[in-house]
Design a protein around this nucleic acid. Structure first.
Length: 315
DNA sequence: GAGTTACAGTCATACGTTGG
DNA sequence: CCAACGTATGACTGTAACTC
């Protein structure tokens, strides 16, 4: 067998057309080429396959057994080329079974996933979402490798150039204490806040640093009784003690639904958390990713899902 | 950027097959 | 045998890729 480098894809298209037409002249007409061109192509095919491929028999060019063996594979290759390779890159959300991998914090899952899943249910019913949380360095590598399509949330260390970003909305902090906490009967004053014992829920590189920086700049200090990395145990600890926790409001709302906790506006100025979506430049022009980013943008641009329907909190 | 090379294509025509 | 039709081939051309 000759070197495959000598096999031009166009030669295989000629071969396929010859099977259909059983005539060099008609194949030429169908391919809008001259008869000698097809004859020349057939000659190259003959050299490559070391077989006559088509021989004259009466008025027709009939395939040899060797050619006959190539008929189906060549047809399959042409179909593959036409339907999967040479087609325009289109993305049909209605039929796609694409899996989108999103990286967000557990807070992010709480804030973004419900609205996202609801939107997908009607617009892209076969799309599946994989949510993966990982440290920032690992996340950047995963996005470079194409293992993560989109990062949504607070990621201060994404450098420009390689990544694109879009700000979605600002998310505030909120304070949590048990219902009936004696120090906060008439709301949460700064004095009472500073007087209380605190619990800090913090994972590395997360939004907690915004709150800590704001306290430091205001030269305020508080007594932290508990540091925890586990979001799930903290609401129970607060409910059963006089501890106060300051967390992203979405977390506060979720906690307050789980146990009898009260949500307060923080008694000092804290910058909002800028929640953004980030993607690698390699996916900038990918139709599937473009569609997915447009969807998240449509759902969350300047719209904090934890605020809608819960306007009673800080109205 | 000019010169060179490779190659796909056309045109013209030679060649082969078939059927009357 | 020969006209009609189809295939094969040589000469030539335009273009793209390569080289310096």
């Amino acid at each position: 067998m000759a070197n495959i480098r000598n096999l031009d894809l166009n030669l295989l298209l000629v071969l396929d057309t010859l099977f259909e037409e059983q005539s060099v002249s008609r194949a030429a007409k169908q391919m809008r080429l001259s008869q000698p061109t097809i004859s020349f192509s057939l000659n190259k095919l003959r050299t490559f396959f070391d077989d006559e491929l088509f021989v004259r028999a009466g008025g027709a060019m009939v395939p040899t057994p060797r050619a006959e063996a190539l008929r189906d594979p060549v047809k399959r290759m042409r179909t593959l080329l036409e339907t999967e390779i040479a087609t325009a890159a289109v993305f049909d959300p209605g039929t796609t079974e694409r899996v989108f991998t999103v990286s967000t914090s557990d807070i992010g899952e709480l804030v973004f996933l419900p609205a996202l899943l609801e939107a997908l249910r009607t617009r892209a019913p076969h799309v599946r979402i994989v949510s993966r949380s990982m440290p920032p360095a690992e996340l950047q590598q995963a996005m470079t490798d194409g293992k993560v399509d989109l990062a949504i949330g607070y990621f201060p260390d994404f450098a420009g150039g390689t990544y694109f970003e879009q700000k979605l909305f600002d998310h505030p902090f909120a304070c949590l204490a048990r219902k009936g906490h004696p120090a906060f009967v008439r709301g949460m004053s700064l004095a009472a806040f500073l007087e209380a014992d605190h619990a800090v829920v913090s994972q590395e590189g997360r939004s907690q640093e915004i709150f800590e920086r704001a306290l430091a700049e205001a030269k305020l200090s508080r007594r932290v009784m508990l540091h925890s990395q586990h979001f799930m145990t903290v609401p129970l600890l607060i409910a059963g003690s006089d501890l106060v926790a300051t967390v992203p409001r979405a977390v506060a709302l979720a906690y307050s639904r789980m146990t009898s906790l009260e949500v307060f506006a923080p008694p000092m100025s804290i910058p909002n958390i800028e929640l953004k979506q980030f993607w690698h430049r390699r996916t900038q022009q990918d139709p599937a990713n473009m569609w997915f980013r447009r969807l998240t943008s449509e759902l969350f641009l300047r719209r904090d899902p934890s605020t809608s329907g819960a306007g009673f909190l800080f109205a």
